[in-house]
């Protein structure tokens, strides 16, 4: 190693060379290069990554704040608009509202009132409908229970609904009425009444209407309620055997058979019971049974 070092190095020569070599670049060249170096640094002040690193956190925080405030503002505005659409006043009303704005408020308040009325009337109609159904069920039971004396108005009017007579025992109890009630309801659909009383004959079902109808369509629930009320009560219905009271039992049998053929089994059953009550000595034919 020392030999190699001696071959490639000579301290005396090197010292002599250093003393002799003293040339240097001219000053203008130094100035130009140093200026270029500064210019390059100035044109690109630090590397991009350094600058980004320095501003990363503040810019991120600022961006989050801006986006958050924008979203909250937007959501608040849209929420107020939606409440206005369905007629519910915004939750927070400014306490120091000017008088002029307060004067402009009534239409909105009226709309709100109308909507509330609509909701209330709908609820009322539903309550009435359910109450009506139960009432009709009771009435039907009552009618069936009192039917033997149909036509005998004095006896019919004197009957108490809650106290079935011993004569009613062979007949179905009021609780057994719902099948008949369902049939009745299907036969006398409330929509028919509604469409008959309203100009929009082809209007959809009430449930659909509620979702699509404008908020100002207030009368609709009332009509519905009226329609529910206007359903023919069981007591108002004509008996199946109307017109046969004076006829012989053979005609009754023929009528019962017709009803069975038409599939009106409930009415046929009802008539059969009346037949047995009126003509206990007559037996029904096989077809009528």
């Amino acid at each position: 190693m020392a030999l190699n070092e001696r071959d490639t190095r000579d301290p005396r020569l090197e010292r002599l060379y250093r003393e002799a070599a003293s040339e240097a670049p001219p000053a203008h060249l130094d100035a130009a290069i140093l200026a270029a170096a500064r210019r390059d640094v100035g044109a690109r002040p630090r590397s991009l990554s350094t600058a980004l690193r320095r501003w990363q956190v503040p810019v991120s925080i600022a961006a989050v704040v801006v986006v958050g405030v924008s979203l909250v503002t937007l959501m608040m505005e849209e929420g107020v608009d939606r409440l206005g659409e369905i007629g519910i006043p915004p939750v927070t009303a400014p306490a120091d509202k000017p008088v002029s704005e307060l004067k402009q408020a009534p239409p909105a308040a009226a709309a709100t009132g109308a909507a509330q009325q609509q909701v209330e009337s709908q609820a009322r109609a539903e309550q009435e409908a359910s109450r009506d159904d139960s009432k009709r069920a009771v009435d039907l039971g009552k009618m069936e229970a009192t039917s033997p004396r149909t036509g005998d108005s004095a006896a019919n009017s004197g009957m108490g609904a809650a106290a079935p007579s011993p004569a009613a025992e062979p007949f179905p109890k009021p609780l057994a009425a719902p099948p008949l009630l369902a049939q009745e309801r299907a036969a006398t659909a409330p929509t028919d009444t509604v469409t008959a009383s309203r100009p929009e004959a082809a209007s959809p079902a009430p449930g659909e209407r509620r979702s699509t109808a404008p908020a100002t369509d207030v009368p609709q629930p009332k009509i519905m309620a009226r329609a529910m009320v206007a359903k023919p009560a069981a007591s108002d219905r004509q008996p199946v055997w109307q017109g046969l009271e004076k006829e012989p039992p053979e005609k009754w049998v023929v009528r019962i058979e017709e009803l069975i053929r038409e599939g009106r089994t409930a009415e046929a059953e009802e008539m059969r019971a009346e037949f047995k009550r009126r003509f206990p000595d007559h037996s029904l034919g096989r077809a009528a049974k």
Binding site: A37, R38, V41, S47
Partner: peptide
């Protein structure tokens, strides 16, 4: 100097 310090250059 790479990181922008001209004096180092």
């Amino acid at each position: 100097y790479r990181d922008g310090d001209a004096a180092a250059f």
